[in-house]
Design a protein around this nucleic acid. Structure first.
Length: 148
DNA sequence: CCAGACGTTGTT
DNA sequence: GTCTGG
DNA sequence: CCAGACGTTGTT
DNA sequence: GTCTGG
């Protein structure tokens, strides 16, 4: 599925790549849309790419997503929320991360996300290797010394 | 009713 | 397709 | 945002 | 000048 979203009724393409969780049930563009789960994302911030290392205690986690079909082509995107204090140093918004036990609820159109997951987050510096989509191995997320 | 809108991120 | 300002 | 690209035809 | 990949 493409990471780019257009309404079925779109005439001009908007190619949306995210939506605010605060308004997904209010905005016309999203309230009818279906929900999905996204595994492993890289999020963009200013001049740097920041990886969500996609694990909590080495367990993979999912991000909250929304999708539709446009001209038969599936398109999806991530849902954002206000950044936690930790991440707010880097970016004002962050992806909605779902706890394992909330996955079904999200898909059932309930607005859920567990604060405990966010409290347990850690930040680490990664290499600019991550800035190219050609690089897809784990050096993208390996920790570098803070002063490098 | 009916025409017109319908979105997010960054930065200045 | 659905909502809403006029 | 910001740097970098921005084109077409034929054939193999 | 405008679009898009990163």
């Amino acid at each position: 599925m493409k990471w780019s979203y257009n309404h079925t009724w779109s005439k001009t393409l908007l190619n949306l790549i995210n939506a605010r969780c605060e308004t997904i049930n209010i905005k016309l563009s999203f309230k009818m849309a279906k929900r999905c789960l996204l595994l492993q994302m890289v999020s963009y911030s200013g001049s740097e790419l920041i990886t969500l290392s996609s694990s909590v205690n080495n367990e993979l986690f999912y991000l909250a997503g929304i999708y539709t079909k446009y001209n038969g082509v599936g398109g999806c995107f991530i849902v954002t929320r206000e950044a936690t204090l930790l991440l707010s140093e880097v970016h004002q918004r962050m992806s909605v991360i779902l706890a394992d036990y909330d996955l079904d609820s999200w898909l059932a159109r309930e607005d859920v996300f567990d604060q405990k997951l966010l409290e347990n987050m850690e930040c680490h510096l990664v290499s600019t290797i991550v800035n190219s989509i050609r690089n897809n191995d784990k050096t993208c997320v390996e920790s570098l010394p803070p002063d490098s």
